[in-house]
Design a protein around this nucleic acid. Structure first.
Lengths: 114, 114
DNA sequence: TTAACATGCAATCTTAAGGTTGCACATGCC
DNA sequence: GGCATGTGCAACCTTAAGATTGCATGTTAA
């Protein structure tokens, strides 16, 4: 049987790629730009940045690889949009850690007061 | 003046190092082990893993560099414990993205229904 | 004091991440 | 057709990440 702790551990491990994808300033900027709701093209996402279009493309593909983005082909453009569900997953993983931590503190407190 | 969007953007950028630190399976495992509440020594954290003690030390220092861990020197041991506040910060950053996303979807919906 | 244990320090290796450049290809517009 | 625009592909470069090994140092307990 698989214990609850083990399942929690596994769920956490699964979100490692998501955190890794978010762990880059440029990619976080892209996510921020896309979370305004619209789907944006590579050219649009590149405009106003210091780096090359190719660099942006690579970052977008890293984010897509982590399941955070989807691309939509439209004519000669390739639009990218956020996959909010994945963001939520990562958030829940952090929730799990924080909760476990709180629980441990409660136990410690109870132990001290006894 | 600094707009709300810009502040949000900045807050997001600040959490990039935290996400980067969490974006490694080994480090996530360490965080999971430490979130059980206790402070553990390097030797304890290394036991049962495939990698070297030095590797574990390096990972711990990366996590500490992101503000996720604190170390306590105790005799010949060096104990590590979680900094839950930092986890919370990262979680709030993801919250901000998700909320912005929802808000944008609401606006889109309102626009379509008009 | 000495042996075992817990770390620290530093050099080294391999590989992947982030970025660039150059050129080919498809699409939209006049 | 012809030209500007938006991407894709591939080679290449530089540096930092992840990990290892070997040895020095500090602590504890017998």
């Amino acid at each position: 049987m698989i214990s609850r702790a083990m399942r929690k551990q596994t769920a956490l491990q699964n979100s490692a790629p998501v955190f890794a994808a978010l762990g880059d300033p440029t990619r976080l900027r892209l996510v921020a730009a896309l979370c305004a709701g619209g789907a944006l093209s590579i050219a649009q996402l590149t405009a106003g940045t210091a780096i090359t279009r190719q660099a942006v493309t690579k970052h977008l593909e890293v984010l897509a690889g982590a399941g955070l983005l989807n691309d939509i082909r439209q004519g000669r453009e390739r639009l990218w949009e956020l996959e909010a569900a994945r963001i939520d997953e990562a958030r829940r993983a952090l929730d799990a850690i924080a909760q476990e931590w709180d629980r441990a503190l409660q136990q410690l407190k109870a132990f001290v007061e006894k």
